[in-house]
Amino acid sequence: MGSAEEDYNFVFKVVLIGESGVGKTNLLSRFTRNEFNHDSRTTIGVEFSTRTILVGDAVVKAQIWDTAGLERYRAITSAYYRGAVGALVVFDITKHQTYDVVDRWLKELYDHAEASIVVMLVGNKTDLAQAREVPMEEAKMFADNNGLLFVETSALDSTNVEQAFETILKEIFHKVQKQKQRSSQGNTVSLASESPESTTLAQTEKRPCCVAL
């Protein structure tokens, strides 16, 4: 374990949450495949995509989870949040109701995920500015007050989608780096640190391929 190359290879699990119809699946497909699907159906179960990006000189693999059915499939909530180091809480700027329930999504998130998770509030569908119901300042203030990153996006014309994911991945990366420094100061052997917080983040480090089929 611990060649220089491995030290800079990370897998970050990021989950997408928010009301049905706010565009989670399209944000995911825009970021990972540069696609937008007008006729996308309700997600059943979990959609799952990865994309590798450079953060500084480190290669970071984003493993992004998207689900619709959290309220329909309670049985998978635990698996959905387990090991996540980042979360995008998405709402639709043209539907106030999807913004009103953001705090409920946050509650569920903090109930299941590690406290150290990096959270970003995302107001999607800025291409429908004429139908806007949620003022940007309002959402921005909410994000600031709750210690969340904030961005407005359009998965349709791809405004800010790239930036949103890059920002959160960078933030996670910095958190991991800080943690690594701390644990190396404490003379702990890199990965198997005892503290629960660093265990979660340490787990995100790329492991050798598990299964040889």
């Binding site: 179960g45 799952f48 598990c210 299964v211 089929l213």
Partner: peptide, 27 residues
């Protein structure tokens, strides 16, 4: 095992080839 993994909760897309817990189930 290989055959059955892909048939385990196929609509959840969690355990199928390329899914997040495919390798875990296999292991």
């Amino acid at each position: 095992i290989k055959l059955d993994i892909s048939r385990t909760f196929p609509n959840l897309c969690i355990f199928q080839q390329g899914g997040p817990y495919h390798d875990t189930l296999h292991s």
